[in-house]
Design a protein around this nucleic acid. Structure first.
Lengths: 199, 199
DNA sequence: CGCCGAGTTGAACTGAATCAAGAAACGTGG
DNA sequence: CCACGTTTCTTGATTCAGTTCAACTCGGCG
């Protein structure tokens, strides 16, 4: 798996001179987690943004019936954070877990606030992240409201082309809001359709 | 229905002196729509934020199968906007329609940008709106992933206690991601349960 | 008065869940 | 490197929540 450098990510998104970005990076923590490690447990406050350099994270909740629901996957190059917990200072509803050995940059809320004061373009950057996040969530809602299991799955593999090869299939099912068995059948159906088409 | 003044909303959310807010309000457009009017059609760019002073709006999309899906209701005191269209300059996927005669304040993107430059606390305010929006969307996704039709309905009436009395029931069904017939049956079931309990 | 959209109800149907069992893949320790 | 248990994936049978289609009621409005 290719590494995604946080520096690259930042330079292509914030218009600040390299010196400033270097300073920013110095104020980040860098951490490595092993497969299965938790970065955050539900119930704790989560006031950081994680940038994945290498590996995959998942963010999920557990409902009253004991079922897991995956809110987001974050492979390399993706950000993961819990704005609800961070911004509103609430205990998080979500667990964040490493699904592979994963290297992350951790940007703490305090650092974000400082940076927003010091680098004018940083708050623009932060706004962009928020807007992007909203777009992502809105599209997902639309999909959940309108699409069948098969349609959701097809959309998923377009959005996260390689995740399927890297995480257990039942987690993908959980992200899609269906059971593992259903996903297995959907995939079987698709293979059958393709076979028909190409033979 | 009680009126919700935009000034009140702003003063309780931005720490800027009244003079500045007065100026802000002067740069807003105020408009009235009749029941059934469209504020925005899908396909057009939507670069404003609407604040509802009186009335109700709905924001909805139409999928390939021709079905409507309601993304949000906005009764008085609520904001409605399409960040995806506004921020990324894309044609909107959503229609915005007045469900009653409705009075709104319109805050244009250009004005927002100006204000962010002129009033430091304004961008904090904007960030707060974005974070709130994210929280709202995330909770909805969780609900769609985990809850049955009945559970969604119960959550809905807690969140929008009076909307049900003001808009056709089939629109609520569309918001919940179920058919009008199903909602009718869910409601019937709930009445039956309550009758059992109280007799 | 007559029409039309909204809501209700019933019957048949269907996509997905559940339950259960077996097969395959995987990791770990000997 | 093999043997073992554990987790994941698949498949089948059954059930169920919610959809679809259709008929009927009700209330408002021209």
């Amino acid at each position: 798996m290719r590494n995604f450098s946080f520096r690259e990510f930042l330079t292509s998104n914030i218009s600040a001179d390299p010196e400033v970005i270097t300073q920013l990076l110095q104020r980040c923590q860098r951490k490595s987690y092993k497969k299965g490690d938790f970065l955050i447990l539900a119930g704790a406050n989560c006031s950081h943004i994680f940038f994945v350099e290498k590996g995959v994270l998942r963010q999920y909740s557990i409902d009253e019936k004991g079922k897991e629901h995956i809110l987001q996957f974050a492979p390399e190059g993706w950000l993961l954070n819990d704005r609800e917990s961070m911004y509103f200072n609430q205990p998080s509803k979500y667990y964040i877990e490493a699904l592979e050995n994963t290297d992350v940059f951790i940007l703490d809320e305090k650092v974000i606030d400082q940076l927003a004061l010091e680098i004018p373009s940083f708050s623009t950057f932060n706004t962009e992240l928020l807007n992007n996040h909203i777009r992502h969530l809105q599209n997902r809602i639309n999909l959940l409201l309108s699409a069948t299991a098969e349609e959701r799955y097809l959309t998923f593999i377009q959005m996260y082309p390689d995740i399927l090869l890297r995480v257990p299939q039942w987690m993908v099912a959980s992200y899609l809001g269906i059971t593992a068995e259903s996903l297995s059948r959907v995939r079987k159906e698709l293979v059958a359709k393709n076979f028909k088409k190409t033979s």
